[in-house]
């Protein structure tokens, strides 16, 4: 127990950590995870969680619209910014989702760099749309359960 009543759990994998959090009756917002090489909060509070995913969603949205407008250089810039924002997970549990977002954005980036730069190219548009969807599903998750509780 730390001085501000946070609990530090040791572990490297989300499922094991989540099992322990539930088993010990801990509140997720009061838990830090020590992975061995760094200590991260298990989850972010609502404001930081929402703003992180809004930031990433806005990058995806901008990238898609720039691609459809034919501005592929600007589109690549937005994708690059999204990759930077997704690179450093600010909390333990979002790391796995950020890794998936990274893969989708990288897929779009590679397709564009391989020459899929025209509005008739469907591939980058689809990859970025899938990335958008991941961001939306992360944003809405807490809201859904707030409605139900």
């Amino acid at each position: 127990m730390t001085s501000d009543d946070r609990v530090v759990l040791r572990g490297g994998h989300p499922l094991e950590v989540c099992h322990e959090v539930v088993a010990r009756g801990l509140h997720p917002e009061h838990v830090d995870v020590d992975t061995g090489d760094r200590v991260l909060p298990l989850v972010l509070d609502d404001r930081h969680h929402l703003l992180m995913w809004i930031r990433l969603y806005s990058r995806c949205l901008a990238a898609r619209n720039l691609f459809l407008a034919g501005a592929v250089d600007r589109c690549l810039w937005e994708i690059g910014a999204g990759l930077i924002a997704a690179a450093e997970a600010p909390c333990f549990l979002d790391e796995v989702y950020l890794a998936e977002l990274h893969d989708l954005l990288r897929s779009a980036e590679l397709a564009i760099l391989a020459g899929e730069t025209n509005i008739e190219h469907h591939g980058p548009y689809v990859a970025i749309t899938m990335a958008e969807n991941l961001c939306v599903s992360r944003m809405i998750r807490r809201e859904v359960h707030a409605d139900l509780s």
Partner: peptide, 28 residues
């Protein structure tokens, strides 16, 4: 967590569902 009074219940499902958290080494 299911038998504590509702006002004290921790809403784990807002943060994660154990059934949807990947197992070790299993990507999304």
């Amino acid at each position: 967590n299911e038998v504590v009074p509702p006002e004290n219940r921790i809403p784990y499902e807002r943060y994660f569902e154990v059934s949807a958290v990947p197992e070790p080494g299993v990507p999304l």
